[in-house]
Amino acid sequence: MMSFVVVAILVIILGFIAIRGIGVISWEFLTTAPKEGMTKGGIFPAIVGTGCLVIGSMVFAFPVGILSGIYIHEYLSENWLKKFLRMMTNNLAGVPSIVFGLFGMALFVNYLKFGDSILAGSLTLGILALPVVIRLTEEALKAVPDGLRLGSYALGASKIQTIQKVVLPVAFPNILTGLILSIGRVSGETAPILFTVAAYFLPRLPESISDQVMALPYHLYVLATSGTNMEETRPMAYGTALVLVSIVLIINLSASLLRRQIHKKTKMH
C-alpha cells in the first residue's frame, strides 16, 4: 500500500527527531543562552526571538487580513474587482519565501532604513502570512448561512451592523482557527528572516523593535550547517529541531482540534 508510505514518512521524521532530541531537552536548555561556540547552554534567546516575530507579524497580518477578507466576501459581488483581488491574493500566496526575504530586505531594511530589526522581519513575515489569513477568513465567512444575514436585514439592521453583530460572532471560531494556522506557518519560516532580522549569535534578549534577534528556525540552520565543531553542536541541533517541531505541531493540532469542535457543535444544532 503506497499510501502508507506517507504515514511512514511522517512517523520516521518525527520519531527520529524526537528520539535524538528528547535527551537534550532540559530546563536549562529551554531557559539559557547558547555558550561555548553553541556547543553548550540552551536556546532561550531563539525561543524569545521567534515569539517576538510571531507577535509582530500577527499585529500586521491579523487586522489587515481579516478586514480584507470581510471586504472581499461581504461587500463584493462576483465582479472583476473580486476576481482581481482573488488573483492577487493567490499570486502573493505563490511567491517563494526567499523572494519575500529579498523584498523585505530591499524595502524595509534598505529603502525605509529600518535596518536588520524585529520591525523589518515582522513586516516581512506579516506579508507572507497575509494571503493565508485572507483566504481562511473568507472561508469562515462563507460558512455563515445566508439566512442569518437576511434575517438581520429583515429586522432593519444595516450592513455593518449585520457584519458586526451577526456574521462575525458566528464566523469567529473559524476565523480563530485560521489565525492559529497562520501562526504555525510563520513560526517555522527561515528564508524571509535571513536578511531582515535573524542574528547568527546574540545571547542577550531584544530591548526594542529595532533590535536583531535569534530565531528558532534560523538557529537550527546555523547549528546544522555552519558550526565550528559539528560533533558537539549536533545534539544542540536535535534539541532545537525537536522544540521547533513541537511548537509548530502543537499550534497546528490545536487548530484542527478547534475545527473539529466547531464541526461537532454545528452538527448538533
Binding site: V6, G184, G188, E189, T190, L220, L244, V248
Partner: peptide
C-alpha cells in the same frame, strides 16, 4: 490520513532540510 497529511505540510522546511542532512 487527513491530519497526517496536514501535519506533514506543517513541518518547517528547515526541519526537512536538517532531516535530509
Amino acid at each position: 490520513m487527513k491530519p497526517v497529511v496536514e501535519l506533514l505540510a506543517g513541518i518547517p522546511s528547515v526541519v526537512y532540510g536538517f532531516f535530509g542532512l
